[in-house]
Nucleic acid binder design. Structure first.
Lengths: 153, 153
DNA sequence: GGGAATTCATTCGTATGCAAATGATATCAA
DNA sequence: TTGATATCATTTGCATACGAATGAATTCCC
């Protein structure tokens, strides 16, 4: 039975045959592989920064100073994860931390001059990473894919 | 400028404006979020096994006994990662290890009876996970999306 | 046959990613 | 006002994920 037939069955809630379960046809598995491929392309172009670190810098460039938690929300990282990312960016002098004057719970994060330079310099590379990641698709396919992927995310 | 216009520019290698770089429109970022969402759906249905652990069991069910490295290749994990996954499955009695008689470098992995029971029991849940992950899309969109995603992975 | 290159597995180090527990602060509501 | 709740941040523990280095075994090829 083809992958398409299996998917159709699945969506229509027909009774599936366990013999027809194939890992390599499952969204989750392919999603994981596509993500892996992208990370690999990213690393080939930007070796000294990870995608999450880049995301933090890029978002700080957009929104300016924010709290660590708020930044995490903006780039889809939980509090524990964002802390590690910010710690490492701080250790490299790309971001600086300060206390919120009014709300003493908050830890404000902002780009340093060096961090701003870095993100501006990296954005053209990031465009190339996006281009290369999408290279297997035609322009029309890219438009379709991005629309559907956004629905899933 | 719209996301679509930016993508078109990018694909056609026109000069982009750095002001128009938006993290939330980049494939990598959305791919990461879609993957996160899937993992979360997976955890809600199968709490005592991770997607990589499930993948290892499902693939062993397909192919039977294989070497650890070969299994890693089949489920897209490098040697270091697959070792950890197999170690944990072994600790739980779901797989068993043995030495290859001829090629003494190889470590053979196979399902135990318990492991086989587990994967058979979990496959219906995995179908439901796939269904729920794809729920935001129509049947037609699913077919399109899976085709394009496969091209990227 | 034997040295070079390859393959298999392990280990180490670093970096996400998330659940759960904790502490400090802020807000809400009776 | 104060007690319950909620929010922000940190820490711990566990599980991927991968590069790089290492050692053992095999294969390649002259």
């Amino acid at each position: 039975m083809s992958a398409e037939e299996n998917l159709l069955k699945l969506v229509e809630s027909e009774e599936p045959d366990d013999q027809d379960y194939h890992l390599q046809e499952q969204v989750g598995f392919i999603l994981r592989k596509a993500h892996q491929r992208h990370v690999s392309i990213f690393a080939a172009h930007i070796g000294d920064l990870t995608p999450p670190q880049f995301a933090a810098l890029a978002k700080l460039r957009d929104v300016g100073e924010t709290s660590q938690n708020q930044l995490g929300t903006l780039i889809a990282m939980d509090a524990a994860t964002v802390k590690g990312v910010i710690d490492r960016l701080k250790a490299r002098g790309l971001v600086e931390l300060s206390k919120h004057e009014v709300d003493k719970r908050r830890l404000l994060v902002n780009l340093t001059a060096e961090g701003r330079d870095a993100i501006e310099r990296l954005i053209p590379l990031a465009r190339e990473i996006t281009r290369e990641t999408l290279a297997p698709l035609s322009a029309k396919e890219i438009a379709t894919f991005m629309k559907l992927l956004a629905k899933l995310a």
